[in-house]
Design a protein around this nucleic acid. Structure first.
Lengths: 123, 123
DNA sequence: CATCTGTTATAGGAATGATATAACAGATGG
DNA sequence: CCATCTGTTATATCATTCCTATAACAGATG
């Protein structure tokens, strides 16, 4: 998977990294059990500091998207807590929907957007 | 509307302010043409600096959620650019859906969440 | 033993977030 | 006219965050 960082974005690099990897998992570009590049390798590849990648990996580990093994490095491993996941999704979705509603995007249009994305990702 | 700030959150105060006001608009607690408190009044009310509120108002103005008039202060005024709005909503939604998919939240559950929120807000 | 993992410590520089004080221009109401 | 209310701008300061840099450590591999 190609990870793309926008160095001119106002979003922190480590946040972009987290989001890109999560997007990669959701779109099956990364699969359960698959290894991610080592912190040093990925840092070298995208031209950032090792600690920036390490920070992203540590966050993804803490949030249950991957597990880290000194032998194999960072490995995709999803920790599912469905109830908490739904609660978190609802909160994040609320912010997005609020902005959308202010722009006159109605319920049907939002459902269409959701379907679009699920379709595009093969869900 | 009661604006609630979490001073222990890792989200910046001015970001929380923006989100709360957008949520307020989406849920009809604020209506088109309605006045918001003055920067000084709101800052006093929630116990933050005037400039912090001013920053939030300036952002909301730039993003087209309100207009600012020296006479009447900050007034809800939605600037609708439907195409751009859909594009932005899609991007924000992608991040939320990616996290949700990683937690095994399927398409139907996501649609249910969307309906839940629209229902709760009277959409 | 050399080399690869993640991890930790420490430090420095740049940018951001929040505060504080102060002043200005425009509009309002007495 | 004047006191008072708007948003806005200009400084300055302080703490925190982001990113980088250098270095070292423990565990596992071949």
């Amino acid at each position: 998977m190609m990870i793309q960082i926008d160095f001119h974005s106002d979003e922190a690099i480590y946040v972009q990294l987290c989001n890109q990897i999560i997007l990669g998992i959701a779109t099956s570009q990364f699969r359960e059990g698959e290894q991610l590049p080592s912190v040093r390798a990925l840092a070298e590849a995208i031209g950032v500091n090792m600690h920036t990648v390490n920070k992203a990996y540590a966050i993804l580990q803490r949030e249950g998207f991957l597990k880290i093994d000194r032998r194999r490095g960072a490995v995709i491993a999803l920790d599912i807590d469905k109830l908490r996941a739904l609660s978190e999704a609802r909160e994040e979705l609320s912010i997005v929907l609020a902005r959308a509603i202010c722009r006159n995007i109605n319920r049907n249009e939002m459902h269409a957007l959701v379907d679009d994305i699920y379709d595009a990702w093969g869900g």
